[in-house]
Design a protein around this nucleic acid. Sequence first.
DNA 1: GGAACTCGCCAC
DNA 2: AAACGTGGCGAGTTCC
Length: 466
Amino acid sequence: MMNPSAMTLQAYKLFHEGVLAFARAEQLGMRIDVEYCERKKKQLTRKITGLEKELQKAKLIQHWRHYYGKKFNMYSNWQLAHILYDVKKITPVSTTVTGKGSTNDEALSQLGIPELDSLLEIRKLIKVRDTYLDAFLREQVNGILHPFFNLSTVRTYRSSSSNPNFQNIPKRDKEAMKICRRAILPRPGHQLLEIDYSGIEVRIAACYHKDPNMIKYIKDPTTDMHLDMAKELFLLQFMDKKIPEHKVLRDAVKNGFVFPQFYGDYYKNCAINMACGWGKLPKEGEWKAGQGISMPTGTLSDHFISMKIKSLHQYTEYVRKVEEDFWNNRFKVYQKWKNKWWVEYQRKGYLDMLTGFRCKGVMRKNEVLNTPIQGSAFHCLLWSFIEIDKIMMKEKWKSRLIGQIHDAIVIDTHPSELEYVAKIVKQVTCHDLPKAWPWIIVPLDVEADICEVDQSWNKKFNYKLI
DNA sequence: GGAACTCGCCAC
DNA sequence: AAACGTGGCGAGTTCC
């Protein structure tokens, strides 16, 4: 990390100050509801035991127990794979990196065996109990948690977090989110404020490739890249984010096509993601009327069939063309940058980020293209974190920075300072940073969420920033 | 009996 | 020709 040929002085200073700012957040830590964690842990254990007992009665599990005898373990994926794919000779939906049949959520739910669904439900509860609540209790000192924020572990010069990891607390699964985030509290009389950069990686990518069409999408709030791609990929002339069925399709395209494409995925995976993952259409055979998620009129299969797309195979071919258009027409300058950047790395053996970091070593193409974007995007957050920390100390705020999640900052805020803190954060993140780093050629934007005074992290409300 | 590996799963 | 980027961590398994 501190290899001087791997960073400019500017980069070194950023990390030096970053380490100090993170240390202050770590030292203060965050309050945790110990009694709640203990109570919830017991409650989860009771629930898990009940579900386990229920599951023992299932035929598949009895067969499995009989086969393994004393060594039977419901949570051994190795045993499960053996029973399913060797003993019962079921064809695995997918395989692991070492070539064995997969026993992950995707694979098991596709087998359509009800007892496996209960197993997945139990797995989820165990994950919440053992990875989060247990870790919170283990790591807390006098009711305070001190997650580490490391700046020396990640190849792209991003940060990581550990003991416990504050950067992977459940959010998308509402049930898991509520259980885990209910444990995190502000200091007495304070409230938790969270500010995150909107689409920071897309914006920082634009600073590298400078694609005019991408810059237009970023600058013009009346345009919507994901909605435009959704229209194309779902063959709809008109779409509106406010229509619930259309919002589902837009999200499917955002997470199943646009982002994967930016990470270097390709049309075959994207087609399956959208049609079968989000759209709920079968992978095999011809699609029939009435299948898949509902649309404003009929279902997805009805719609696709009316557009002469009757199977995953045909849809994949369509997505191939959309991908080609995406990179060769819509974002052709981005595509040119990708080629140039890859060739340049191969020639030099390293790449230099706009933030002054140099990455050396053997990298695959996707790594080479992603590293500068991921790293620099995080450095924007880091610069902002440091600046806010400096102001906070100089002005002796009661409010304090307590954590960071790649593109978001968490602040334990005193209500009397809330408006002022929010104003400073907005100023630093969206105005001071682009002034300090002139290579930022697109506007930056942040969004904020706030919890009520003395309330935990699971109930957040949008906080309007001016 | 512990280190290293595999697998699964949480986040951005 | 190749084909989703970056982490941490818990449990099970294998290796020494």
